[in-house]
Design a binder for these strands. Sequence first.
RNA 1: GGAGAUGUGUCCGAGUGGUUGAAGGAGCACGGUUGGAAACCGUGUAUAGGUGCAAGCCUAUCUAGAGUUCGAAUCUCUACAUCUCCGCCA
Length: 418
Amino acid sequence: MLDLKFIRENAELVKTAVKNKNEKADIDKIIELDEAKRIAQFNFDQKKAEQNKVSKEIGLKKKNKEDASDLINQMASVAQEIKDLKAELTDAETALNDAIMWVPNLPHADVPVGKSEDDNQVIREWGKKRDFTFQPLDHVEIAEKNALLDLERGAKISGSGFPIHTGMGARLERALINFMLDYHILHHGYTEIMVPSLVNPTSMKGTGQLPKLKDDMYCVSEDDMYLIPTAEVPITNFFSQEILKNDALPQKFVGFSNCFRREAGSYGKDTRGLQRLHQFNKVEMVRFVHPEESWKVLEEMVNDAEDILKALNLPYRLLRLCTGDTSFASAMTYDLEVWAPGANKYLEVSSVSNFADFQARRASIRFRDADGKVQFVHTLNGSGLATPRTIIAILENYQNADGSFEIPEVLKAYLPKI
RNA sequence: GGAGAUGUGUCCGAGUGGUUGAAGGAGCACGGUUGGAAACCGUGUAUAGGUGCAAGCCUAUCUAGAGUUCGAAUCUCUACAUCUCCGCCA
């Protein structure tokens, strides 16, 4: 959420940002609604001040055993007027809040303006793509040869996009998750956190999934709850509605969760095997920092995610997303894409974003600075990493000519021979 | 799922329907005292919106929403949360 005062004073800037992010929020309409709301607020305040004043007088008179019936009669109609003004104010507030929830975050000045993923910038590449002496298989074939997955039965039980990991496939998945968690805890100083998979609508609004991404999420309507698309949601909301003490910052959390995505409208696109799923596993890093720190911390988090790929010795490239590809709530996003030789393409395994104070405003996450002033924190998050495409990359990069595959060195401790 | 109790500020904890944004503590901050500290003394200690150059003033907020009333932290209803007991259960 942006500051209303900021929108009011920088309308053109915000309009440009909306356009560059391929969003539709109507800024002129919001400014109108804001004015209407302030007028309603003023009218209500005036009437209420009158009532408060006279009610006090009535109280005094009664205390002195004087007759106050004149004043009481005089106030009889005011109560109803206040009720009406209050209703007007509530309506104006609701309309304004609904509208402002659709205004995206401003992209940072360094974010390249662009329409789609074709305009993303490659920042750097790491690792050497392996020269194969044979035609590399893709992960579905390797998984089949080694009985790692049972996608058919997953589809039978739940539907397509709900994979079943079997035997070594399940062990590898579990080893990878534990390795990544431990790595961030031991080498990067994160605190592990385990969070709910179902959250309420307020939390989804707080991180910016609602209202825009409603159709991309699974909803348990009976209980008015949503399955999380990422652990970012419950972890970032950890401090929602709170004012942190000055020395509470920074905070760094890492957590594993299942992630659930409806992927509405993306049927048939890059769906082979584990490429695009309705349910998958992910280790997520979340940071709460002082506003002055967030840009430095964004680079740190990118490094934290890269370290996992380096440890696994998987070639990758780092992209800075253009405005059109940067998510609604983000001010700047980097993607990490791992090289998959079987598929012969790069696959996104991590997205690292600085939200600045956008989520903090929505979720009301604040802190008291050194001068005792209350300010919004900055929030950041990044995958570290999502497992499915990391597994794809491991299988395809570590495959042997006979269809078997090697276990990355760093995972061996997590996969004792049985 | 059933029965009951509770929900006040950073925390604890008062609060008879009428100058209560809220007593009193604790904590914290600053100042005094001290060689330094503890103890002690003094002062300060919410958030949001509006208005003003500013001091300030107005409005809202005692879990949330609705109701009764000229007036609600206080009375009524609903929801939510916590605790206790019973039931069920990994």
